Simulated scan of single mutants.
Amino acid sequence: MSDRPVAATSTQPTAMESGATGEVPRRIFISYKREVEPDEQIALQIFQTLNQHHQVFIDQTMTVGTRWAEQIETD
């Protein structure tokens, strides 16, 4: 197992995003293999698109061994 850091990024939908379109915001988790192309590039593009109307969690800086479920729930 590697001790290299990995990242976690999440965002909360804004008031406009959560109601203006009539769309119900969803909580989405994106899992991908870091530092591998095209995986990382595609995952980030999906994150940017979905993040416009949903609460999206994507791992980019979490330390190996972090309790994923707990981290996702707090973000």
Rank of each mutant, 00 (worst) to 15 (best):
43 A>P: 09
34 R>Q: 13
1 M>K: 12
42 I>T: 13
13 P>E: 03
26 R>N: 06
45 Q>V: 07
64 V>E: 06
67 R>M: 00
43 A>S: 12
22 G>P: 05
57 F>M: 01
49 T>Y: 09
30 I>S: 00
44 L>N: 12
15 A>S: 12
10 S>C: 07
1 M>I: 10
49 T>N: 08
7 A>H: 04
56 V>H: 00
13 P>M: 01
48 Q>L: 00
39 D>L: 14
1 M>Y: 12
22 G>H: 09
29 F>Q: 12
74 T>D: 07
60 Q>V: 08
11 T>L: 04
64 V>S: 11
30 I>F: 01
38 P>A: 09
67 R>H: 15
73 E>H: 06
1 M>R: 11
29 F>E: 02
17 E>V: 00
70 E>W: 06
6 V>W: 13
38 P>K: 07
47 F>Q: 05
51 N>R: 02
4 R>D: 05
9 T>W: 03
62 M>G: 08
21 T>N: 05
70 E>P: 02
49 T>W: 09
37 E>T: 06
25 P>Y: 00
69 A>H: 15
62 M>K: 14
61 T>N: 07
73 E>A: 04
44 L>M: 09
27 R>S: 08
54 H>N: 11
51 N>E: 04
19 G>E: 14
14 T>Y: 00
16 M>S: 13
9 T>A: 03
32 Y>N: 03
74 T>L: 05
45 Q>E: 14
68 W>T: 03
20 A>G: 02
16 M>G: 09
75 D>R: 10
24 V>L: 11
70 E>H: 08
50 L>M: 13
49 T>S: 04
37 E>H: 11
54 H>V: 09
38 P>M: 07
69 A>G: 14
59 D>H: 03
29 F>K: 00
34 R>A: 12
43 A>Y: 05
65 G>M: 05
12 Q>L: 06
40 E>A: 06
44 L>V: 09
25 P>H: 10
4 R>P: 04
